[in-house]
């Protein structure tokens, strides 16, 4: 049996997101020029949810887009096989915008590197910020998050699993021995 531990339940996640929403607003002094871009796949629902919270607080809708970074990965030729592509859908201009990238887990930083390269191909944002639900450490690149739901020290042999669904009640973050 693998050892598994729930480190956040749905209420904990909800509270963290609320806090992160306020932090984003505080840091950016409102929603002007603010857009959210969720990274496929884990960041999509999180970005949507953050967007809703921010809109509710400010009374103004915040655009949220989807970004698939597969084509920007640095391990395509080494992975042994091509990954299936996800959808990129950023139905607004990024020029001059303050973009908050949203992802579920920040780990090595390579995904964020790829995401920033991808964003640059779509426009010229004024700023890119990073919001993650979990920061589990072990960075391989000089990247850090601007907004963190929870810092979760972990070992390489552990897997951090984030479950976010439309029905919030079953949301959870668990940590388990990967092998």
């Amino acid at each position: 049996m693998k050892k598994r531990k729930v480190v956040m339940d749905s209420e904990g996640i909800e509270r963290s997101l609320t806090r992160v929403a306020y932090q984003i607003l505080e840091r950016n002094k409102g929603v002007e020029d603010l857009v959210l871009v969720g990274i496929q796949k884990g960041g999509i629902l999180l970005a949507e949810r953050l967007g809703k919270k921010i809109s509710r607080i400010e009374g103004v809708p915040v655009p949220a887009g989807k970004l698939d970074i597969t084509l920007y990965r640095d391990d395509i030729m080494k992975s042994g096989r091509a990954r299936q592509l996800g959808k990129t859908d950023i139905p607004f201009s990024l020029d001059g915008k303050k973009v908050v990238l949203v992802d579920d887990v920040l780990f090595t930083g390579r995904t964020i590197r790829a995401a920033m390269d991808a964003l640059m191909d779509f426009g010229r944002p004024k700023q890119i910020q990073l919001a993650v639900l979990i920061d589990r450490g072990h960075r391989e690149l000089p990247i850090r998050a601007d907004f963190v739901g929870k810092n979760l020290p972990s070992s390489h042999s552990e897997a951090v699993l984030v479950r976010i669904s439309k029905r919030k009640t079953s949301d959870s973050v668990t940590i388990e021995e990967a092998f």
Binding site: D68, T70, L71, Y72, R73, I76, A82, Q84, L85, G86, K87, T88, D117, A118, D121, F122, G123
Partner: peptide
């Protein structure tokens, strides 16, 4: 997969580093 690549050809920067 080809459907996904249609996007790339319609962007301003029609190139990915893949």
């Amino acid at each position: 997969t080809a459907d996904s690549f249609i996007d790339v050809s319609t962007r301003e920067i029609k190139k990915v580093p893949t």
